[in-house]
Structures are given as structure tokens and as C-alpha cells.
Design a protein around this nucleic acid. Structure first.
Lengths: 192, 192
DNA sequence: CCCGATCGTTCCGTTTACGGAACGATTTCA
DNA sequence: TGAAATCGTTCCGTAAACGGAACGATCGGG
């Protein structure tokens, strides 16, 4: 909570909330009733004077029949919200992560820049990469035996050996990459 | 806060947090330091025993360099209306399937044909869909509150309520879709 | 081996979020 | 018109989130 009584997070959240509420023709009081939260809470969130808990946020989002991201995130932001990580030839942006008892999945969007090649070190044993090419043509996979895939094609390889990424044809390529990391080894971020 | 001391929101948030943290090779203590929050808070969130405030959530997401939505999977809209209508707006190609002890992941490439909208029935409880738009603009997600995403953007929603797919703008759209189905239900193909 | 550093969990005093109630303003309806 | 209902803001007692400290466990290095 800021010294002036306002919240430290983006005040746009309160504006978005109010916009959604009014679009549904709900009064503040009615929304609070439906969400099972206090009117003071809804009022405070709309005005940026309260810092609600996660439960409260979910309750409000559910009462509005919207996903949480409708309140907490700019709709157009996903691609830009995570910080892209730039390597020699690859710019990767994390889209989502899933943790299972035995493995973690990370989903990235990749931009592979022309004119350069990137070699990634071996991931720990058992890590696999699964790449679906969106645009352009990519040479990728195990450094010892790279594969080539064009837009619309899909590749998988074991990433526990050095592997490469390069865009062919002089144009930037793009892909969706899913990294599956079995548990046991310490997890590390992309090393794409 | 539930009577048994656990939180009422989706415990997957804590799992996702832990997965991301470990993927970054961060200890709980280090993440807490970077986020400027207490270790007890991070520990409590990972174990579902605390209900953090929005500020705290943002601080943690920022420390992980991920958007908030990477942590807060959209709960989706309440079950909306009627019986799903299966149309012919979507052509889906299964790319890969990953089976984990607790869940199965199916990765598809979708072509969404213009001029039609397809509504999918609710999947069993807990099923989620995660879609990254490759080309065009798509309206998709919970039928009660559909979202729009253009090429380069990423969306997620709970698929245990009816959900829709439509290409906007008169052109075919394309996307990569990841469906996560927690175990118990038998596997089924897309119901897209 | 011992010691220091770090870990994640728990403790606990402090701060703050919670929602019911109070309140003045506004709206609705007979 | 007047009464009742509802509104959104504020108040305030209660519960819970906060983070620093304590603690036992683990790890790494001399």
C-alpha cells in the first residue's frame, strides 16, 4: 500500500473492473453480493485504495464471468508481457508453464533471426524439445544431426545433447517450442 | 481461507509457481528476496496455505519475469448455456501427446476456417486449453466470455465449460493448441 | 570433523484486508 | 409526495496476510 493510500499495482485494474461491471449492468453492490465479498472491497479495488487477495480477485472475476486475465492483464499483452530472452539467434518468450508430479512443461514462442546460428548446451538427461514451425524454415535439433523443418511442420528431439537453432533462407523464422523437463535434475531456463 | 487451512483458489497456482521457480534455478529464499516478499509468503503460496494479495502476486510474477497469467490460470466462466454445437469451423492436426502421472498433454495445430463458428462442449472438470495464435485473428475461449487474440498472442481458458472457435476478419486463422487433461477422465480428441 | 551459509517451514508481532453496519445521496414506486 | 429500496463511500472490529526472526536440516568448504 502506497504512502498516499493508493495501491502499488496498475490502477488500470480498477478501471477494467468498473468497465466490465457496467457493461454487465451491475451495480457495485450487486457485484459484491454475487461475488460474496464486501462492497468496501469492490469499491476499494475500483478506486485503487485496496489491495485484494487472490481469492477475492477470483471471486470477483467469477461473478463477472470473466477469466482472471481480463482483470489483471492487458488483453493484447501476452506476447510482450514476459521478458523476451535473446540469444545469438533466438529470441524466446515464455508463454506458459505446467508442473506435473513427474515433469514440467514450458511453452515458448520463438523468433529465430536470420544470419546466425545458436548452439545450446545439453540440458540435463531426459529433457526433450518439441517444436512446431510457424513461419520460415528452421534447421534445429541435435548438433550432431540437425533436422530441417518448414512452416507447418513439427519436430521433436532429445535436448540432453548440444542442439542448434538457425533460420534458413535469409528470413526470420518463428516457432512454438514446448520443453519437457522431467523432475530430478534441477530445472533451468531456456538454454535454447 | 478454508476451514482446513488451505486456500480456496486453485492449488495449481502454487504448483505453477514452483515449476517456474525451479525452471529458473531459484531457491524459494532467493525468489522471495528478488520479489521483496517474505519467505513465508512464497512458501505459503506454493503450498496453498496463504492467500496473497494482488501486490504480492505481481511482485512474484515480476521476479520471475512472467506475466501474471502465467501464474493465475483462468478459472473460466461458469457453465453457460446449452448443448454444444459441433460445427466444421476447425481442422485440427494432432502433433504430439505427452502422458504424465497426473495429466495428459495434447498438442494440436489448428486451422480455423472463416465464415463459421464452432462451439465445443464442456470437457470434463479440470481440462484446460492453451492456444497460441499463429495467423489471423481468433475469437475463442469460454463461450460465456470469449476472448480475441491475433497472431503472436496467447490465450488460456478452462475447457470444462462450453467454448468457441471462430476466425475473424474473413480469413483462415491458425493456431497451436495445447490441451491439458488431468487424469481420471479417458482421453478424447479435441472436441474443438 | 567443524563451521558458516543457505535452505524451507514455522512463529509471531505488526499491519492490513476483510465484510457488516452506518450513513448521506439517489432512485423507485405507490 | 413520501416511504422504501438501493446506491457507493466510509467506519471499524475481526481475521488474516505481512515479513523478520527463529529453527532444524542440509550443503559446501577448510
Amino acid at each position: 500500500m502506497g504512502a498516499d493510500g493508493t495501491s502499488r499495482f496498475d490502477p488500470a485494474i480498477g478501471r477494467r473492473l468498473r468497465g466490465l461491471r457496467e457493461a454487465r449492468g451491475l451495480s457495485l453492490s450487486e457485484l459484491a453480493r454475487r461475488a460474496g465479498v464486501g462492497k468496501a472491497t469492490v469499491s476499494g479495488l475500483e478506486h485503487g485504495t485496496r489491495n485484494p487477495t487472490l481469492e477475492t480477485m477470483y471471486a470477483i472475476a467469477a461473478a463477472l464471468s470473466v477469466p482472471m486475465s481480463a482483470l489483471t492483464l492487458d488483453p493484447g499483452a501476452p506476447a510482450g508481457a514476459a521478458s523476451p530472452v535473446r540469444g545469438a539467434a533466438v529470441v524466446s518468450t515464455l508463454l506458459e508453464v505446467f508442473r506435473e508430479p513427474g515433469a514440467t512443461y514450458e511453452m515458448f514462442r520463438l523468433r529465430i533471426l536470420p544470419g546466425a546460428e545458436q548452439t545450446s548446451p545439453a540440458h540435463p538427461p531426459g529433457v526433450t524439445e518439441h517444436l512446431s514451425v510457424i513461419r520460415g524454415t528452421i534447421r534445429t535439433g541435435p548438433a550432431a544431426a540437425p533436422l530441417t523443418a518448414a512452416a507447418g511442420e513439427h519436430l521433436s528431439w532429445a535436448a540432453d545433447a548440444p542442439h542448434v537453432y538457425a533460420a534458413l533462407g535469409g528470413d526470420e523464422a518463428q516457432a512454438i517450442l514446448l520443453i519437457r523437463t522431467p523432475h530430478s535434475p534441477p530445472l533451468r531456463s531456456p538454454n535454447v
